[in-house]
């Protein structure tokens, strides 16, 4: 378990918070979005189901767009575009 926040290319980021439980995934997701520019896209990978509901509402309230929600095994991958 280790926090991973990477810039993959210009405008494309990755946040991996697998292993983390509440409230870390949602806090790191919020902080990552704060560091990005409008229109940038991030893949958030986490495995704490309770955080998913909060991340979706946070994006909705702050004007970010959840482009895709995937489930791979026990991992959840949300692709979010900063609004």
């Amino acid at each position: 378990m280790a926090l991973k926040f990477e810039k993959l290319e210009e405008g494309k980021y990755l946040l991996d918070v697998c292993g983390y439980v509440c409230p870390h995934p949602q806090i790191y997701c919020k902080k990552s979005l704060e560091k990005m520019n409008e229109g940038d896209v991030i893949d958030v990978i986490f495995d704490n189901p309770s955080s998913g509901e909060t991340i979706i509402q946070m994006c909705d309230g702050q004007g970010h767009e959840v482009l895709e929600k995937k489930k791979e095994g026990g991992k959840l991958i949300y692709t979010i575009k900063k609004g």
């Binding site: 509440c22 409230p23 949602q26 909060t54 309230g61």
Partner: peptide, 19 residues
């Protein structure tokens, strides 16, 4: 996902009123 910790915590941490 009914957790009383998330009620005030997610309000302050992420601005989410869900819980």
């Amino acid at each position: 996902r009914f957790c009383f910790a998330s009620a005030s915590r997610d309000l302050f941490a992420a601005g989410v009123p869900r819980m």
